[in-house]
């Protein structure tokens, strides 16, 4: 765990008067706390696209990355399954155009394959302080609201209980030819999220959605960190 590097990123954003970290910055904070995130490179110039794409390896996901834009899907700023250098360059131009002058770059990221999407998060309750969320991810998060909360700091038992508590808990088992999720790894991620809330008072909210199960391994595919001053 590297609390200082996380704090540095956050102080930088606060110094610029921002209340939101970009996806790229958010993931660096998570990484500092040992939470597994997608491999990715942030690219600002078109000339850097081919090398970054080769480094990550096709197929790719490309996303507009700006702290000024919280919900990317709705703005058409995501391209998935980008397979060639030509496609990558075309995607770069379209996304740049879509950013419409907002400050930021294009995130070139590995495409994580997995049919099971989870959500994790942190909110700060006025009465009880930082609380960690776990639940069904992707589009189901808001539709089914199948979620569990625990107040930070979390014990290992708390984290395991959250996973048992959601109605769809069987999604973590070995189902339909998929491996059982690595619950210990998931528990570590939830505990670490709570720790971020305990350590850094200016972190107000966190969304990790989706967290995709690639085989048994959870990986944070998209992240948002909201700050307070």
């Amino acid at each position: 765990m590297n609390r200082e590097s996380a704090e540095k990123i956050i102080e930088g954003a606060l110094g610029e008067g921002r209340k939101v970290l970009s996806e790229y910055e958010s993931k660096r904070v998570l990484e500092a706390y040992g939470i597994p995130v997608t491999r990715e490179v942030l690219v600002c110039e078109e000339k850097d696209v081919p090398r970054a794409a080769a480094e990550i390896g096709y197929p790719l996901v490309m996303k507009g990355c700006s702290a000024e834009i919280a919900h990317k899907t709705e703005k058409g700023l995501i391209r998935v399954d980008v397979r060639t250098s030509a496609e990558a360059l075309a995607a770069f131009r379209e996304i740049k155009h879509g950013l419409a002058g907002h400050k930021g770059g294009v995130l070139i990221q590995e495409m994580v394959r997995g049919r099971r999407e989870l959500v994790m998060g942190l909110t700060r309750d006025g009465q009880f302080g930082p609380c960690v969320m776990f639940g069904l991810g992707g589009i189901f998060t808001e539709i089914l609201k199948d979620i569990a909360f625990r107040r930070a700091p979390l014990s290992g038992d708390d984290a395991m209980a959250m996973m048992r508590e959601i109605r769809a808990h069987a999604i973590l088992d070995a189902v339909r030819g998929m491996e059982a999720a690595d619950r210990d790894r998931l528990a570590d991620m939830l505990i670490s999220l709570g720790q971020i809330g305990m350590d850094i008072a200016s972190v107000l909210e966190i969304d990790l959605n989706p967290v995709i199960l690639s085989g048994k391994d959870p990986i944070v595919v998209d992240a948002l960190i909201v700050l307070s001053r």
Binding site: Q127, R150, R151
Partner: peptide, 25 residues
């Protein structure tokens, strides 16, 4: 929940849900 929120986590974490969760915890 009270305050204006940005994230989905915060919008799902209203006082009822949080109270029930912490009491269970």
């Amino acid at each position: 929940g009270g305050r204006a929120v940005v994230s989905h986590t915060a919008s799902l974490g209203g006082s009822r849900v949080i109270w029930e969760s912490v009491l269970r915890q």
